[in-house]
Computed example of a mutant assay.
Amino acid sequence: MASTTTSTADPDPVIASYDVYLTDSEISRYVLQYLDRPTGSSYDDRHGQKPTSFRLKPTTGLVEVDIPINTRVNYDASKGLRYGDALKKSRSTREGGAYGMAGGFSSGGSTSMGGKVKMEAVEAAEGNRAAADAASLLRVQTLGGRIKGPEDGDPVYMLAAFRGANLHLSPVSAVVQLHPQLHHLDALDEVPVKGKGKARKEGEEERPAEAEARAIDVKIKAAEDGEAAMVAGNLELLKKMQDEKWKDYEWVDAETEESWQLYENYMMHQDVEGLPQLESAINSEDYLDQMSAPRIDPARPDMTGWAMKQNRKKQREGEQAAEGHTEGGMIG
Score class of each variant (00 low, 15 high):
residue 97 G to F: 04
residue 71 T to D: 05
residue 85 D to P: 05
residue 75 Y to W: 05
residue 76 D to C: 13
residue 80 G to N: 01
residue 78 S to H: 05
residue 120 E to W: 01
residue 96 G to M: 01
residue 89 K to I: 05
residue 128 N to I: 09
residue 119 M to D: 11
residue 73 V to D: 09
residue 111 T to E: 09
residue 125 A to R: 14
residue 118 K to A: 01
residue 134 A to D: 13
residue 98 A to K: 00
residue 100 G to S: 06
residue 84 G to N: 03
residue 102 A to H: 02
residue 82 R to T: 10
residue 93 T to H: 05
residue 126 E to S: 15
residue 121 A to Q: 08
residue 99 Y to N: 06
residue 133 D to N: 14
residue 134 A to E: 12
residue 106 S to G: 02
residue 128 N to K: 13
residue 110 S to G: 09
residue 71 T to N: 07
residue 73 V to H: 07
residue 77 A to W: 03
residue 77 A to E: 12
residue 74 N to L: 12
residue 104 G to I: 00
residue 121 A to L: 11
residue 124 A to D: 12
residue 139 R to I: 05
residue 134 A to R: 08
residue 86 A to S: 11
residue 134 A to S: 15
residue 94 R to H: 10
residue 100 G to T: 04
residue 113 M to G: 02
residue 137 L to V: 07
residue 90 S to D: 13
residue 111 T to A: 09
residue 74 N to A: 11
residue 84 G to E: 01
residue 132 A to N: 15
residue 75 Y to A: 08
residue 139 R to Q: 09
residue 136 S to K: 10
residue 135 A to C: 13
residue 106 S to N: 05
residue 135 A to G: 13
residue 81 L to P: 05
residue 100 G to V: 04
residue 119 M to Y: 04
residue 86 A to T: 02
residue 95 E to H: 08
residue 91 R to M: 10
residue 91 R to N: 11
residue 85 D to F: 11
residue 77 A to T: 11
residue 92 S to N: 06
residue 76 D to E: 07
residue 101 M to E: 14
residue 80 G to M: 02
residue 106 S to F: 03
residue 95 E to A: 05
residue 71 T to P: 09
residue 80 G to F: 05
residue 89 K to A: 07
residue 118 K to H: 02
residue 107 S to A: 00
residue 92 S to M: 06
residue 103 G to R: 01
residue 102 A to K: 00
residue 107 S to E: 00
residue 87 L to A: 11
residue 114 G to E: 01
residue 96 G to Q: 01
residue 137 L to Y: 06
residue 108 G to P: 02
residue 81 L to Y: 12
residue 107 S to T: 01
residue 99 Y to E: 12
residue 131 A to E: 14
residue 117 V to M: 10
residue 132 A to Y: 15
residue 139 R to W: 04
residue 68 P to K: 00
residue 121 A to C: 11
residue 87 L to F: 09
residue 86 A to L: 04
residue 135 A to P: 06
residue 98 A to T: 06
residue 84 G to I: 01
residue 94 R to E: 10
residue 112 S to H: 10
residue 110 S to R: 07
residue 85 D to N: 08
residue 75 Y to I: 02
residue 110 S to V: 08
residue 84 G to W: 00
residue 138 L to S: 07
